[in-house]
């Protein structure tokens, strides 16, 4: 079991400056958000998928497909009933509300995929390094990267503990819902205690190795902002600008939608 999303691959996108990856993340959040009509959202979706394919990171889709599916169905259904449109089909459902529901579902999924591609191509260390390079104050980057670093520790401990309890005969995957919840108790206590111990240990290890000692921290991973970064970020920026223009002039909206 491996819950890190990071994929250690050697693609041009993996090699990009983390600042560029952060910009791309920002812009690929913006693209779906700018649009309302599902066709336009689908366009943004396609751009994100293409970027993910270029980074050879779409294999991670398999791991989050249930979340994607659930979110899509849920928001489509909810908005189909809650949005209002002029061409009513039956009861609260209108042509526009269906379109809006599908659009919103796609939007959320597109954003999750954008986040997934970012995490698949960017190591924890690169994220904090990127944030510091972008001028985030040191203490904030410190806190942020500490939080990021705890994730793998917990995941690792969780997996070991689950193994330990399963080998005592704990059968996590069967029984009714209530039974299953009850079965998780033996996992929770050791996970909780391990979490406390490891966040304690982590803080001690970070300080003990001089984290925060010198204001002149260097980075072993080196990145250069090259033409490649400018082109990729520029391309996304151009898309966002063009899309903003089209949205402001009303061309990406669903006609007849009444909020």
């Amino acid at each position: 079991m491996n819950l890190y999303l990071y994929l250690d691959k050697d693609t041009p996108i993996h090699r990009m400056d983390p600042r560029a990856k952060l910009f791309v993340l920002l812009f690929s959040f913006a693209l779906p958000l700018l649009n309302q009509h599902p066709l336009w959202v689908a366009g943004a979706f396609a751009v994100i998928l293409a970027y993910g394919a270029a980074a050879r990171s779409l294999e991670n889709l398999r791991r989050i497909r249930q979340i994607l599916f659930f979110i899509f169905i849920f928001s489509t259904l909810v908005w189909t009933f809650f949005a209002k449109g002029t061409d009513v089909l039956i009861w609260r459902v209108s042509r526009q509300s269906i379109l809006y529901g599908i659009g919103t579902g796609l939007k959320l999924d597109a954003m999750i995929i954008a986040g997934m591609v970012f995490l698949s191509t960017t190591k924890n260390e690169e994220i904090s390094q990127g944030l510091i390079l972008l001028g985030l104050p040191y203490p904030m980057a410190f806190a942020f990267s500490t939080a990021l670093r705890l994730v793998p520790t917990f995941v690792g401990a969780g997996a070991t503990i689950a193994q330990a309890q399963r080998s005592r005969g704990l059968d996590i995957d069967s029984g009714s819902f209530i039974e299953r919840v009850r079965k998780y108790i033996p996992l929770l206590v050791p996970i909780f205690l391990t979490a406390i111990r490891s966040s304690d240990g982590l803080a001690m290890a970070l300080e003990g190795k001089g984290f925060g000692a010198s204001t002149k921290r260097t980075f072993y991973l080196r990145f250069k902002w090259t033409a490649r970064e400018t082109v990729v970020v520029g391309l996304f920026l151009a898309l966002v600008v063009a899309n903003t223009y089209l949205t402001l002039t009303g061309r990406t909206l669903i006609r007849g939608l009444m909020k």
Binding site: R149, L202, G208
Partner: peptide, 9 residues
Amino acid sequence: DFETQIFST
């Protein structure tokens, strides 16, 4: 407790 002091990717 060396497990808790390893945190990099």
